[in-house]
Amino acid sequence: MTTVRLRPLSIVPEGEEVLVGDPETGTFVTIPAIGGLVIEALTRGATIDEVAAEAEAAAGQPVDIPAFVATLTELGFVDDGSRPEAAATAPIQGKRWVAGVSERVVRPLFGRVAWCCYAAIAVFCVAVFVVRPDLFPSAARDAFPFGDIGLSAVLLVPFSMATMALHECGHWLAARAAGLRARFGVDRRMMLLVFETDLTQVWGVPRKQRYSPLLGGMAVDVVLLGALLAASLAVDDAAVSAALAVGIYLKLAGFLWQCMVFLRTDLYAVMVNLLGCHNLWRVKTLLLRRAFGRLSAAETEELASASAADRRAGSWFRWVWLAGFAGVLGWFALFVLPVVAVVLRWAADGMSAGPLAGRFWYCLVCAALLLGPYLLAAGLAVRERRSRT
């Protein structure tokens, strides 16, 4: 007469399968529909024998329930009275899932009406660029807009950090509106440092409800860009226009960034959901290794058990990833490193006066603001490599 107590799990039908997970630990898996039936029976308090009989009746053949319960235990889905902890998904990350605001308060911000407004603002932005192409940024004019490298750093970096933080808050608030919680961290994409919001709990809601949390960050970006463009149309003061142009430049660069799905951006997550994939990032790696004949026996087995949707998407996404990776390396070498060299030379010049001069510290702080993120990303990469060996 054994029963098994399960933790509060989310169960979402997903095509012919069921997506089951523990939102508290961020562990989610897909199982065949019969597995969903077993979990529902166990949750109801049915004994192992009763569950086995029910499952056999549904499947038309005996189902190995003890083996499945062992798997559920391994996944941490069985309630053993302890408080579970979510595994880290980023190198620097808060442990706690953040609620913070009530669902009811933020729901109007991410309902159907709100999303229609965000779409309308996006159309407005495109229309402004069509009518006033001079407002479209040019890198030469807007990247170091204030003439002085130091002034650009002092003004740009904090603005950029603030809008990135707002973008992440957009994800979090949209997740709250869907009744989910998120957690914040810092991660890297190749050599770039990023703020990251863990939205893994979206697997606990039906497929259509996942888009709002995934696109919540870009909704904030669109509203900001719309405001910057509206302000640009309204003012004719040259200095204010130049400052607004920098903001527009940064926002558009942010949209370009999101399009780089091979860097696992927001639009990558949207694409995964559209294609019905669940483990594309890993399957892409396995398929790429296979293409270069570097698949181990264990990996061959892992690939064989991957879903058809993941393998289908992975077969072309691996090349998108490879081309994107090479493209970013090229961009970094051609466009970023020369700027880094200019900044270093500028800082070295300014610091040659020695630490008693005010300019020494000004240049040091500016160089740290501009180059700090790259150094931190490099540090994270080194740490990853060490923990792997």
């Binding site: 897909t30 005996p62 189902v63 992440e168 991660d187 770039l192 919001t197 960034w257 483990n279």
Partner: peptide, 18 residues
């Protein structure tokens, strides 16, 4: 029959404008 389980990846949202 045994019930096969497939792993589901984590979902990471990022912002950047570098």
């Amino acid at each position: 029959m045994t019930i096969e389980v497939r792993k589901v990846e984590s979902v990471k949202a990022t912002g950047n404008d570098a």
